[in-house]
């Protein structure tokens, strides 16, 4: 294991932010810490980096107990949401910083920095200052700077959070490809479930300072451990006392075993998909169907249909709801 977090508790004042958190991160993996804001995911990342100290619990990095080590001695790369670029240094000097601190020979620094700048496509920007770069370029510079010291683990705190949607999507794909090239164990924090599912190979869902579920992206999406995870990872709706994904609802005009009678209240066409709003036993629900299905069933407001979760689809029974 590259990172082992055991029973970590952390409070700011009287507010608990991490409650008995234990997480294992496998060597060479790309792990997402996913959860709503205020869920403790950034704090957990900062505890791993040594920028915050846990009240109780331990952190091991590459098998070494790092709980009491300062960030300076942990050999982690950390990338901040707002880049934390050294404003008074050129891009070259920013990336060279960790190597200069380690007193590496000048020509080695030069070679390594240029290599990294090529990796992040900034080789032509070496003599620019951070203020002359776009947000996406600054974040790639910060990534190169963190990679320069050959860290045991790379930690990214909402790395794309400050960027606009287009650049965000580009950098996501790019980060995934970079990880396939460099293979450094990487943990990144995000509140965007799409980002986590697209980029990571393991997703850790955190809420209210506790781990809700750990698994592969398809695992947490298809087999959520509880209603919270199911709601957080994608759209849900409720029929027959169970939580179901709207695309896992089967609509038919004939009654079927396990189905409920429902009346259509509204049909919204969103390009290829169609959103069907329903009333089941006096409760609102909705289903997502393809255009073809909607036309075939001639769905229109006021129609009476039968609905049931697609056989084999994951649904969660809601207790006491």
């Amino acid at each position: 294991m590259a990172i082992e977090v055991r029973d970590v508790n952390k409070s700011f004042g009287t507010t608990p932010v991490l409650r008995d958190v234990s997480v294992d991160v496998a060597s060479g993996s790309l792990t997402a810490l996913l959860g709503p804001s205020g869920g403790g995911k950034s704090t957990l990342l900062r505890v791993i980096a040594g920028l915050e100290h846990p009240d109780t619990g331990t952190v091991r990095i590459s098998g070494v107990d790092a709980t009491r080590l300062s960030p300076q001695r942990r050999n982690v790369g950390f990338v901040f949401q707002h880049y934390a670029a050294f404003k008074h240094m050129t891009v070259f000097r920013n990336v060279a910083f960790g190597l200069e601190i380690r007193k590496r020979p000048k020509d080695e620094i030069r070679r390594r920095v240029m290599e990294l700048l090529e990796l992040v496509h900034l080789e032509r920007m070496a003599d620019r200052y951070p203020s002359q770069l776009s947000g996406g370029q600054r974040q790639r510079m910060a990534l190169a700077r963190a990679l320069a010291v050959e860290p045991e683990v790379l930690l990214l705190d909402e790395p794309f959070g400050a960027l606009d949607a287009q650049v965000r999507k580009e950098l996501r794909t790019w980060l995934r490809r970079l990880h396939d090239e460099v293979h450094v164990t990487t943990v990144f924090v995000t509140h965007d479930q799409e980002e986590a599912i697209e980029v990571a190979d393991t997703v850790v869902v955190l809420a209210d300072g506790a781990v809700e579920q750990v698994g592969s992206p398809s695992d947490v999406y298809d087999n959520p451990a509880n209603p919270f995870v199911m709601r957080f990872l994608g759209p849900v709706t409720e029929i027959g006392g169970s939580l179901v994904r709207p695309h896992d609802i089967e609509i038919s005009t004939e009654p079927r075993p396990g189905g409920d009678e429902a009346s259509v209240t509204r049909v919204v066409r969103l390009g290829f998909e169609v959103r069907v709003e329903l009333l089941v036993d006096g409760r609102e629900a909705w289903a997502q169907v393809t255009r073809g299905t909607a036309e075939q069933l001639a769905l229109a407001p006021g129609a009476t249909v039968h609905v049931r979760p697609t056989p084999g689809a994951r649904s969660l029974a809601l207790t006491g709801a």
Binding site: A49, G50, L51, S70, P71, Q72, R73, R74, N75, V76, G77, F78, F80, A84, A85, F86, K87, F97, G98, I101, R102, A142, R145, A146, A148, V149
Partner: peptide
């Protein structure tokens, strides 16, 4: 920036 410098050693 100071925290970034710390993590860089």
């Amino acid at each position: 920036q100071e925290q970034a410098a710390h993590t860089l050693g």
